[in-house]
Amino acid sequence: METCMSIVVGILFAIGTYLILSKTLLRIILGTSIIGHGVNLLILTMGGLKKGGPPILGLQGITFTDPLPQALVLTAIVINFATTALFLVLSYRTYRVLGTDDLEQLRGYENE
């Protein structure tokens, strides 16, 4: 199960990296978002995937799941959501003000 998940994480990272390497700002944001999902999946996988009961102490005889990776993922998702939203708004504003979302045209110091 962990091996399978690791491959999925790898695929997500590959797609995200490919998108980030493109020139359009929107594609780059989608790429960061996909890498974010890959990271979340990685955190869950690293906690160990096992069939178990709920993460509650005091239940005897049942293996219980490690609750910590879930708490971490929850926090990571919220932060990822906030930064992605901010990035989207900023890139829209960049497009409106600069008239382009092509990173090739956003380089150099000539607009100073």
């Binding site: 960061t32 990685l42 955190i43 690293m46 990035f87 900023l90 890139s91 956003l106």
Partner: peptide
């Protein structure tokens, strides 16, 4: 606006790698 797009991208990627390192 031009520089902040790059700044945010760099820092988002490093934050993801931070999470990967924490997971490992």
């Amino acid at each position: 606006l031009r520089e902040s797009a790059k700044y945010i991208l760099i820092n988002m990627i490093s934050s993801f790698l931070f999470l990967v390192a924490i997971a490992f």
